[in-house]
C-alpha cells in the first residue's frame, strides 16, 4: 500500500469532488434527481474510499467514530423533531404547511413545504451517512479470525 502513489494522489484529488457532488445531490434534490438517501450514500462512499486507501486509523482522524455514531440517532431525531414541531404549530404530524404560519395562506404553505422537505432530507442525509460509515468501521475494525484447525 505504501507504494501506491498514483492511488493515493488520485484519491486525494477525487475526494473534494465526491463530497461536493454529495452536497449537490442533497441540495439540488428538489429540482433534479437526488435527495437525502443518495447524498448520504455518496458522502459515506467518499469516507470509505479514504479509509480503504489510507487505512482506517487515518479515516477515524478526520471522521471520528463517536461523530458517526452520534449521527445515526441525530438524523432520526431531526426528522421526528420536524414532525413534533409542526404538531406544536397546530398542524398534523409532519404537516409542513404550518411550519412558519398557522393557519397558512397558500404562499406560506408552499414556503413551509420547501423548508419541511429540506429539513427532513437533511435528517435522512445525517442518518444514512452515519449508518453507512458506522457499518463500515464495524466491519473494518474487526480483526480476522485465526483458524482453529
Amino acid at each position: 500500500m505504501r507504494l501506491d502513489t498514483i492511488l493515493r494522489v488520485c484519491t486525494k484529488l477525487f475526494l473534494p469532488f465526491i463530497w461536493v457532488f454529495a452536497l449537490y445531490v442533497q441540495l439540488h434534490g428538489d429540482f433534479g434527481p437526488g435527495g437525502g438517501f443518495q447524498a448520504g450514500v455518496i458522502a459515506a462512499a467518499g469516507v470509505i474510499l479514504y479509509a480503504i486507501v489510507f487505512g482506517k486509523s487515518a479515516a477515524t482522524r478526520i471522521v471520528p467514530k463517536w461523530l458517526v455514531e452520534a449521527m445515526v440517532p441525530l438524523g432520526v431525531l431531526l426528522y421526528a423533531g420536524v414532525g413534533v414541531y409542526s404538531m406544536l404549530m397546530g398542524g398534523n404530524y409532519l404537516d409542513y404547511d404550518v411550519l412558519f404560519h398557522s393557519p397558512p395562506t397558500h404562499y406560506e404553505a408552499v414556503h413551509g413545504q420547501h423548508w419541511g422537505v429540506f429539513l427532513v432530507e437533511i435528517g435522512v442525509l445525517i442518518t444514512v451517512t452515519g449508518t453507512m460509515i458506522t457499518i463500515f468501521y464495524a466491519f473494518a475494525g474487526r480483526g480476522r479470525r485465526e483458524d482453529r484447525n
Binding site: R145, D147, N149
Partner: peptide, 11 residues
C-alpha cells in the same frame, strides 16, 4: 454481521 459472528463462533 451475523455471518461474521457465526464464522467467529464456529469457524
Amino acid at each position: 454481521a451475523l455471518v461474521v459472528r457465526i464464522h467467529e463462533a464456529f469457524g
